[in-house]
Design a protein around this nucleic acid. Sequence first.
DNA 1: GGCTAACCGGGGCGCACGTTCCGTATAGTA
DNA 2: TACTATACGGAACGTGCGCCCCGGTTAGCC
Lengths: 191, 191
Amino acid sequence: MTSTSGAARPLRADARRNRAKVLQTAYEVFAAEGLGVPIDEIARRAGVGAGTVYRHFPTKEALYQAIVVDRVEHLVGTARELAESADPGEAFFGFFDLMTTAGATDKGLVDALAGEGFDIEAAIPEHEQAFKDAMRELLVRAQAAGAVRADVTVADVKTLMVGCQAMQRYGGDTAPTRVLEVVREGLRPAR
Amino acid sequence: MTSTSGAARPLRADARRNRAKVLQTAYEVFAAEGLGVPIDEIARRAGVGAGTVYRHFPTKEALYQAIVVDRVEHLVGTARELAESADPGEAFFGFFDLMTTAGATDKGLVDALAGEGFDIEAAIPEHEQAFKDAMRELLVRAQAAGAVRADVTVADVKTLMVGCQAMQRYGGDTAPTRVLEVVREGLRPAR
DNA sequence: GGCTAACCGGGGCGCACGTTCCGTATAGTA
DNA sequence: TACTATACGGAACGTGCGCCCCGGTTAGCC
């Protein structure tokens, strides 16, 4: 939840407060209801005017870009921590679960990953890259340990994650446990 | 691509022609670009006025409901044919492929299944039911033949299909073959 | 050919949403 | 306390889209 870039003059106290409130509110609302929520609504829930939102984030896309970047950075951090852990297979599947769970709780992230509303890869290529790198680490280790089939690529895994997130979001009547279990099983080496 | 219900007075020739043109155009456009395309655009491409579209389909939702119903009926028919076929496992996975392929070529269907824009289950419960019944037939036979793990339900399979469609639609850089292969593998009985 | 009911087109209404503008309030400073 | 740069709020604007309406046209029938 930090700033966008280069150090401009320090914000006035009220401005910094409002910026934080907007960011926090937007994070919660987007996570709960997806990227379709109007700016006015976010402003209202944050207790500020719409103009204030636009002063801090020149465009709606800039707003959830800030949020998604933060989210992705966290995920990358977690992935790196997991890569240190003992069991490569456990680490990989732990991260896989984390990502799919994130999809269940954060509708905004799913929208973003699915390109619903804006295009991550084009908007923040370096974060996309960092994410892929972290995941590659987990993947190759798990594959070397024989926990994951050798022929899947990082792109495959990412695609599978998106699919699993869609399942979580969609499958209302299904317990998510079993469908995720199916995908995990499919990722294991052939019998 | 038939009518909605009860036999009203037969349509005039030009009306029937226009209705067909709209339906055909809408089918193609929705499939190619999803349900987000404006009615005016469909009217334009069909070579009619927007008013004409609304005379035949009182609402945008009614329009793609007509299309989705038609699509689902076809799929159910195919599922029943497959259920007759020799190898239950082949039949099941053949249908699974068919559904995921449908997702790749028909963006509108994916939107509809995912509840993006409207809710199938609420709108056309009897078709939803027929779809589930046909799929159950395929599933239990495949399970009895030991081709599919015994603990997955019809709802699970449907959820997995939606997920696979999302993968197709999303995974631009990935060859869809491998990710679908992973899911299929996961559906097989435990080793 | 003439008559009427059915149908057509496309302009227009209402609403939602992203974005901008400007008069007002306030934090920071001397 | 007085002064100013900075920030605030929310009314207002433009656009896009679903949907309706009405003057003109045409199919079907005598």
